[in-house]
Every structure is written in C-alpha cells, then in structure tokens.
Design a protein around this nucleic acid. Structure first.
Length: 426
RNA sequence: GGAGGAAUGGCAGAGUGGUUUAACGCGGCGGUCUUGAAAACCGUUGACUGUAACAGGUCCGGGGGUUCGAAUCCCUCUUCCUCCGCCA
C-alpha cells in the first residue's frame, strides 16, 4: 500500500510515476480525494482528542469528589460527561468513516514506478535491458517441443495430472521427477553459497500474510482458498517468507536480511487459457526457489542489481540463452517499483519464456506489514523489500529439454549432473 | 475433538475498578570512576497519532460491552500451556 506520506510530500513524483503506468483517470482522481479525506481526518481527530481530554479530566474530578463525600457535585459532573460523550459519538463515527475512505482508496493505488522505469502500456514497451548476444540455438529438423519430448522419454504426464487433479496439474515421473528434484537442490545450494538463509515455510497462509505482501485484496481471485480454515495456498514463497518480518522493528545492523525458500506455488490462473498455455508453459502448480531481501532504503537498488547477477549466474550454469527485460510501467505488477524479467529462449517453440521476475517493492509491502528499522535518530523508518525467482522450475525444465536435445536424447548441463546423477536422458 | 489454565513494555514479572502518568529486576543507552575494560554508583529507556515546537490523544493478545472512570468486570475470537482422546 502506497504511503500517504509520499502522496502528501512527493506529489510530482507520484503523478510522473503514474503516467508511466498509464493509470486511468478515475484512479488518478482518488489522489485529491485522499488528501481532502486526510485533512478531514486530522481535523476530526483533533476535536475527538480534545473531547477525550475533557472526559479524562472529568473522570478524575468525579473520583475525587466521591472520595471527599461530595456526591451531589459528582452527579452533576456525570451529566456533563454524558453531554460530551454524545457529541463525541458523532465525531468518532465521522473520523472512522474518513479513515476507512482513505484506506479503501489507498488500496486501489499501485506502487509508484522508480525513475528508471520506462513509460509504456504493455509488454511491447518493455526495455530489453540486456539482450542475448550469442547465437540462438538452431535445432536440427525433427526436434520436438518439450511436451513431445516428455512423451518420448516418459518424463511427465499431463493426462494423469488431469485425471488426478485437473488441467494444469503435472505428474512428473522417472528422470523427469529426478530432474525436478535436482534443480530444486541446485538452486537452493547456489542461493546458500550466495549467503541466503534457507527457509522452509508454511504453504498455506492466513489473510494477514496475504495482505502483507499485497496478494489481498488485489489478487484474491488468483489464489486457491481453503474455506473451512480461512487459509490461502501460497502463489509464491514470497508470501510466507516476507511475512516473517511483519510487525517487526529491526535494528540498523540487522541488515542485510537474505532469505531463500523452495516451495510449490499454486496459481488459479483464472482467465488465462489460450494459445500459449501448452505443456509446462502455464500450470496451476509449479516449483520455485525464491530469494527475498529486506534492505535499508539507501541500498535497495544496489541489492536489486546484485540479485540480477545471481539469477544470471544460474542461467549461465544451466547453459540457457537468456535476456533481461526492464518492465515498463504498464506491464509491472501492482506492488512493484521496478521489475526485471528474465526470459529464456525455448528453441523448439521458438519463443522467449519468462522464468524469473526480480522486483524492488520499496516500502509498498513494508507499509502494510509495518516492517521498520530504527535509524540513528531513533525514528522508525519503513524498510525496503525485494524478491526474485531463482528460479521457477516448470518453464526452466521446458527450455532445458528443448535446447539440450539431439536426435536420440537430452544432455544434462554439466553443473546439474552432480544433482541428477545422470548425464543424459535417452 | 473433550476438560482445565494462561496471554502485561526487548526479556522476566507485579498489578483484580480511581496518584498505572504500568512497580521491582534484567538487558539497552548515557555518565562517574579507570591507561583501557569489568565491577560499583548515578541517570535514562516502548509503539502509533499529532504539533513549527510544546500540548493533547490511543495502545496491557484481537474485537465488542458495562462504568463518570477498565490492565483489572462481562461477552467473543485467536494463540500458548497442562491433561485426556486420535494420529504421520
């Protein structure tokens, strides 16, 4: 949730940022409404507080009067109290509705894009921040897309996924299952080497956690929900891992906080059926190792670059051609201030697949989570949060299978061989 | 699932209706002393809101209620502990 402080103090930057997102007029119109509601809130608060002060004083007087045996005088003060309370009830209702109005509107406003974010309305306008400079793999005639390779080498089964659960659920088997496990371990080990603490977090979370990282109310329809227990299946490890620090005040030397976690991710992907959902390209359940950082605001963009380097090294070791996009305002997620997407080239499909998204949320999550640190002056300052996939499995598997195939098998990248225990699928 | 108990500041722990403006202690911070440190002694010590700065207001697990007045009484929810049952 965007800080009210930013709206009040940095209006220029907010408006400039929202132009990059092509924010519709009706949302821009919320900004002056929020400011006037907040003025109203302050005024009401002042009046309410003054009345409360009077009530506090009167209560003390009444206590003293009773002690001194002056019951008559005490009773007359009680009448005074009743009058003030009645007047205050209306003011308090007024105050509550102003607060609610501010909250409702703030929840509708996305994060303000960082200065480097390009203007744009769709994926077309994303900046290719780091193009692939090598040659794209050219596959021999007869090369197969990953869903055909899966059948040929018995790696995963989509029909069984449908039978057991429904469309979009995959059953991995044999070397397909082992490849999954190998990738997860590889990614976790690489993150550990880079200094990230490994976390195993709950896969179901409560509404407070989903709200903390911004999935609620914005993406409610994208999450599976266990109604009986009021728990959401996580769409990413970001949710449970970041929420470790909900309602926490850090000391300044608690930085840097670096955590990673492997979890399955559950996404309903409502309304996204279409041409590009074949095979592993878009599924309801996939595995992902996520890296999460909690940082001092002055360092967060340096850390974002550091995270890019980490993801790059993973893709390099997997011998996959990749490029990095800096997302334009219109294509960025609601909560993000700047996002880089990593795409790997899927040679048989001849298209780029998004395999990682690395974002700086600045204070958008911490404002809602109340995650702060103490500066030298003793003020509580909101920390910055960042996270990124390092990496997401299903599409990586698709690209690995397609790019490393030859006529009668698939080669496993050297870095992964200690983890798979085999060099080749054939 | 059943029966009982509990939840107070960073930690520990008093407080059962009116100097609680939350005791005492530990820890933290500052100081005295010391070549330096420890010990000892003295002082200080949370969050939110609000103000130019004061003032003021809110917060004793969450929410609601009783009362002139609630950490304290009532209702409700959540979490933890003990015992029983079930169980990977």
């Amino acid at each position: 949730m965007l800080e009210l402080r930013i709206i009040r103090n940095e209006m220029e930057r907010v408006l400039e940022g929202y132009r990059k997102r092509n924010l519709p007029e009706e949302l821009l119109a919320l900004i002056p409404e929020i400011i006037s509601l907040d003025d109203h809130r302050k005024a009401s608060q002042l009046l309410v507080d003054r009345n409360l002060e009077k009530l506090n004083l009167l209560s003390k007087e009444i206590g003293d009067l009773f002690k001194n045996g002056n019951a008559a005088e005490a009773e007359s003060r009680k009448l005074e109290v009743a009058t003030i309370k009645e007047a205050n009830a209306q003011l308090e209702a007024d105050l509550a509705s102003a607060k609610l109005g501010i909250e409702e509107r703030l929840l509708l406003l996305p994060n303000v894009p960082y200065s480097l974010v390009p203007m744009g309305s769709s994926a077309e306008d994303n900046l290719v921040f780091k193009p692939w400079t090598g040659n794209l793999p050219k596959l021999a005639a007869g090369s197969l897309p990953h869903w055909e390779l899966a059948k040929k080498y018995d790696l995963f089964d989509m029909e069984l996924g449908v039978k057991i659960s429904g469309s979009g659920f995959i059953l991995y088997r044999n070397k397909g299952a082992k490849l999954q496990r190998a990738l997860i371990n590889f990614f976790l080990d690489e993150a550990t080497k880079a200094g990230y603490e490994e976390i195993q977090a709950p896969l179901l979370v409560n509404a407070d956690s989903a709200r903390g990282t911004g999935q609620l109310p914005d993406k409610e329809g994208q999450m599976y929900f266990a109604e009986k227990d009021n728990l959401y299946l996580i769409p990413t490890a970001e949710v449970p891992v970041t929420n470790i620090y909900r309602d926490v005040i850090l000391k300044k030397d608690d930085f840097s906080i670096k955590m990673c976690g492997y979890t399955p991710c559950f996404r309903r992907e409502a309304g996204s059926y279409g041409a590009h959902v074949k095979g592993l390209n878009r599924v309801h359940q996939f595995d992902k190792v996520e890296i999460v950082r909690i940082e001092h605001p002055e360092r967060s963009y340096g850390v974002l670059d550091e995270m890019l380097t980490h993801v790059e090294s993973l893709l390099g070791k997997l011998e996959l051609p990749y490029r990095i996009l800096r997302l334009c305002g219109g294509d960025m997620g609601f909560a993000s201030a700047m996002t880089y997407d990593f795409e790997v080239y899927s040679a048989a499909q001849e298209r780029w697949l998004e395999v990682s998204s690395v974002s700086n949320f600045e204070t958008f999550q911490t404002n809602r989570m109340k995650l702060r640190f103490k500066n030298d002056k003793g003020d509580s300052i909101l920390a910055h949060t960042l996270n990124g996939s390092a990496l997401a499995l299903a599409r990586i598997v698709a690209a690995l299978l397609e790019n490393h195939q030859d006529a009668d098998g698939i080669n496993i990248p050297v870095a992964l061989r200690p983890y798979t225990g085999f060099d080749r699928i054939h």
